[in-house]
């Protein structure tokens, strides 16, 4: 795994090895450079989202424009992004609440009960990791058509609710609860649901927050399934809304300023979640 320095990222070529190893300047300079590169596209997008269509077509014009309010208002109301974002938010909320509920119940059964074929049941759940959406999309679509769930919230959310990952994570978490706590609960004659609500959930707050944040980002960012299952544009989610606003231009001029504004709008919610729940999110990912 030894990679010759000359094959490393171009940004670092010849810079790192030649300077003294304790030189913080190199480290900080390189990091700043990386930050700039990683941030540049969205910063530019944010700037372009304030420009008029004429300004955005002047390639070298990267100064903030004059149409911040107009552009975002147009995108939200004329291009329906208010509706799309609301749809995304409802979908995301339903999926998170559903996922947490069913996974917590299943994990409780798997850890605190003794029943036949316990391991088999766990593996049956785990085996679904082998079935990502692409390997079942056609019949899933057909199923939704048959039960009348195409173009509905039920159709949009239901395939996302069962989660092997969440069951797995909560099972891990529950197994690390000290036996003494469980024993006390048992002696007190606490039932399983009370045990879950009053003992397990408070003890797993961090992980629940982390799982929620990860699920929020994953669900908000879903693209393929909404594209397939939603028929009418008014019911669509924000990700696919980007496809619409970008496609409007096939008729005439693509208003890139509006496309950029839409992109910024769609980026904000998951970004906020990441910033707010960063601590939980990072520790949850690390434990997976």
């Amino acid at each position: 795994m030894s990679v010759p320095p000359e094959r490393l990222g171009t940004r670092l070529r010849g810079v790192l090895p030649s300077l003294p190893s304790r030189d913080g300047l190199v480290v900080h300079g390189s990091l700043w450079l990386t930050l700039v590169v990683i941030l540049a596209p969205v910063v530019l997008a944010a700037i372009f989202s304030t420009q008029s269509t004429t300004q955005v077509y002047q390639i070298t014009n990267i100064l903030p424009g004059t149409q911040l309010v107009e552009n975002y208002t147009t995108v939200l109301f004329e291009y329906n992004f208010l509706q799309f974002m609301t749809n995304s938010l409802v979908m995301t909320t339903v999926v998170i609440v559903g996922k947490l509920s069913v996974s917590l119940l299943a994990a409780t059964a798997l850890v605190y009960y003794r029943f036949p074929y316990q391991n088999l049941v766990f593996y049956v759940i785990l085996f679904t990791l082998l079935m990502p959406l692409p390997v079942r999309i056609v019949p899933l679509y057909q199923l939704m058509a048959e039960i009348g769930w195409l173009n509905t919230f039920a159709g949009l959310t239901s395939p996302f609710i069962a989660s092997a990952t969440a069951v797995f994570l909560f099972r891990q978490r529950f197994r690390s609860v000290p036996a003494a706590v469980v024993e006390t609960a048992r002696l007190d004659g606490v039932g399983p649901l009370r045990f879950l609500v009053y003992v397990l959930i408070p003890m797993s707050k961090g992980m629940i927050a982390g799982v929620s944040a990860v699920m929020f980002i994953a669900t908000w960012n879903a693209y393929l399934w909404p594209l397939v299952v939603i028929v009418e544009r008014a019911n669509q989610v924000a990700q696919v809304g980007l496809r619409y606003i970008q496609g409007v231009g096939s008729e005439g001029l693509i208003e890139w300023n509006l496309v950029m504004a839409a992109g910024v709008l769609v980026l904000v919610p998951p970004l906020l979640v990441l910033l707010v729940a960063r601590k939980y999110l990072l520790s949850t990912l690390a434990s997976g």
Binding site: L44, Q239, W256, L267
Partner: peptide
């Protein structure tokens, strides 16, 4: 990590 692929797609498509 939080950026939707679709956002990455449309932003770079223009930039």
């Amino acid at each position: 990590y939080a950026m939707p692929l679709a956002v990455a797609g449309v932003v770079l498509d223009f930039i």
